[in-house]
């Protein structure tokens, strides 16, 4: 296992380089600093768990890495690109090509079938309709839901919905997956399935994964665990 992993890792720069990253929210006259001067490198092929008390800034950090939000200070370089300097339109295109998102509450389109949900990111590509369909089918097969392709989200269990969301996140083959409490709403068994799937994507498909979690059992699936406390990082190795 370690051999394959080191083969995946590039010899040069890490996939993600974060320097002096700060984020402050302005609410009315109040300015709340949520992240303070964070430095962090994430190697390509890494599987990182991010833990910490509620309100410590985990989601904020994850959103910044995924390009959903822009920092107040510092820099974020992903794959050699300074995403903190990108304009909204550019950032949207960058997200579409490079990041898959997995949320606690799945965030599927309730009116669309599983298949159509998975196809969504491919609408932004030049792929033909049949190619889109084919790729979505492959992604669904990978998460073990090929027989649920025509089901709407409401007709699926939480675990199944989250697996559809994972299929959607990987269908355009991004290098990076960001997951915000992906098992936060699942029972133990479904959680294990989802985590197993993430591990597979990391090991077999070389996806770099950053996962926020409150669950120490979930964190065990990661190579590293980082602790965030009041907007500052405290690194700890996994057991």
């Amino acid at each position: 296992m370690n051999a394959t992993l080191s083969e995946l890792k590039p010899s040069a720069a890490p996939l993600i380089e974060i320097r002096e990253l700060s984020k402050a929210y302005v609410r009315g006259k109040q300015k709340v600093e949520v992240l303070h001067h964070i430095d962090l490198d994430v190697a390509e092929g890494d599987f990182l768990a991010l833990m910490g008390p509620s309100g410590s800034g985990k989601t904020t950090l994850l959103n910044l890495i995924g390009g959903l939000d822009t920092p107040s200070g510092g820099s974020i370089t992903v794959g050699g690109k300074r995403i903190d300097r990108m304009k909204a339109g550019e950032l949207a295109r960058w997200r579409a090509a490079n990041v898959g998102f997995i949320f606690q509450f799945y965030n599927l389109m309730p009116m669309l079938s599983a298949q159509r949900n998975v196809e969504l990111p491919l609408l932004l590509t030049k792929l033909s309709r049949s190619e889109r369909r084919q790729r979505a089918a492959i992604a669904l097969k990978l998460v073990g839901l090929e027989d649920r392709a025509s089901h709407k989200p409401a007709e699926l269990s939480g675990g199944q919905q989250q697996r559809v969301a994972i299929a959607r996140a990987i269908v355009s083959d991004p290098a990076l997956l960001v997951c915000d409490e992906p098992t936060g709403d699942l029972d133990r068994e479904s959680a294990e399935e989802v985590l197993g799937l993430l591990r597979l994507l990391n090991r077999e498909h070389g996806k770099t994964i950053i996962m926020v979690t409150h669950d120490p059992k979930a964190a065990e699936f990661a190579h590293h665990v980082l602790h965030l406390d009041k907007g500052t990082l405290v690194e700890q190795a996994t057991a």
């Binding site: 339109g89 949207a92 960058w94 998102f101 965030n107 309730p110 969504l120 990111p121 609408l123 932004l124």
Partner: peptide, 15 residues
Amino acid sequence: TSELAVLKTLGFSSR
């Protein structure tokens, strides 16, 4: 609102 936010997350432009 949240569905539209998801579309934007996936990279659909504001326009």
